[in-house]
């Protein structure tokens, strides 16, 4: 277990920005899911699960395929 912490500490300069970027992606998508009630398919719960649990790919999928038309809100 000790070595694992050592590993994390050694690579902290990479881990911190990496985690931050993934959080930015997730939070942007999550806010969009929650504020826009219309989706091209699926429902809110489905998209929240996808966006939160599938790292990187989830938010991309939402913005490309899931988000509804702006005109309908």
């Amino acid at each position: 277990m000790n070595t694992n912490w050592q590993l994390l500490a050694d690579n902290l300069p990479i881990f911190i920005p990496l985690i931050l970027l993934e959080l930015i992606l997730m939070v942007t998508a999550l806010v969009h899911v929650l504020r826009h009630p219309h989706y091209r398919f699926g429902n809110r719960i489905l998209w929240v699960l996808i966006v939160v649990f599938i790292q990187i790919i989830g938010p991309i999928l939402y913005f490309v395929f899931g988000r509804g038309d702006e005109r309908r809100g």
């Binding site: 970027l21 993934e22 992606l25 942007t28 969009h32 990187i56 938010p59 913005f63």
Partner: peptide, 14 residues
């Protein structure tokens, strides 16, 4: 506004 550039930038930075 469609977040396309944001996604592209974040993904390639990852």
């Amino acid at each position: 506004r469609t977040y396309r550039f944001l996604i592209l930038a974040v993904v390639v930075l990852i």
